[in-house]
Amino acid sequence: MRFHPAVALAYVGLLVLVVLLSSHPLGLAALAVVVGAGLVATGALRSWWGSMKLLWPAVLLIVVLNPLVVREGATVLWHGPRLPLLGHVGVSLEALVFGLVMVFRLLFLTGAFFIYQRLVEPDDLLALVGRTLPRAGVMLALATRLVPTTAATYREVRLAQAARGVDFRGGGRMARLKHHLLLIKGLLLSSLERALDLAEAMQARAFGSGPRTAFVTHLWRPRDTAALVALAVALVLLLADLRAWSFNFYPRLDPLLAPGWWLPTFVVAGALLTPPLLELGWRRWPWLRSKI
């Protein structure tokens, strides 16, 4: 998405805030549209979906464990046996809905993270914070580069050791553990050597030799103003009526359609949809592109 990094940060920050504050199932349904639009507009949908294979154990844990251990729900759907440590187990409707709401919040938070990753380059963040926190910005950029390089080194060390007959899959547990420790040793040694080389290159380019300035490349466009206004509206409405986003699960579920809940929810969700819609419009509508 082509927004000024400050606007992009504000958008993702507000998205995270709304997800954290929202426990109303219908509010979450509106957020599903908002996060979905953000993922589509930033092109992060596929990678977010790909992350599900890592997330599903956490999802399963929340959905299964929460109803089994929480006994506050009044609408009991199943009475289970008595288990050591846990006592009587059972499943209530309230605990089940609570677990599902938590799962959706987790998925939306993950979605917001993927949107952030596509929207804000670490270098952009550095440019933003460069004037006040230059070292933190450089650390961030280095850490971002470190992830793929460390992954590549891991693969190379593993390949090198496999070429000497180290079987990372076969053998007993102890043998596998020993092999993996060797891998970590190789990774550490290589990372240390790389860090020294990088530090030397940075020193040669005057890093840390005195106050530094920031290279600013981003332009402020009409779409940044439009998005920022929409986000400001969303923030004001969110803070003005936080109750619209809250929901009580125990001992019984609140009524789903309480009077007055929908207006602030829809307006906030609509405002949060503005940046992705602007992006999609920018991309697909040349006239709009020339104007914003």
Partner: peptide
């Protein structure tokens, strides 16, 4: 050091 080409080139002048 940096992740984008122009920012990488700007790194030295920024440090100066």
């Amino acid at each position: 050091v940096m992740t984008r080409v122009d920012r990488e080139v700007a790194f030295g002048p920024e440090n100066l």
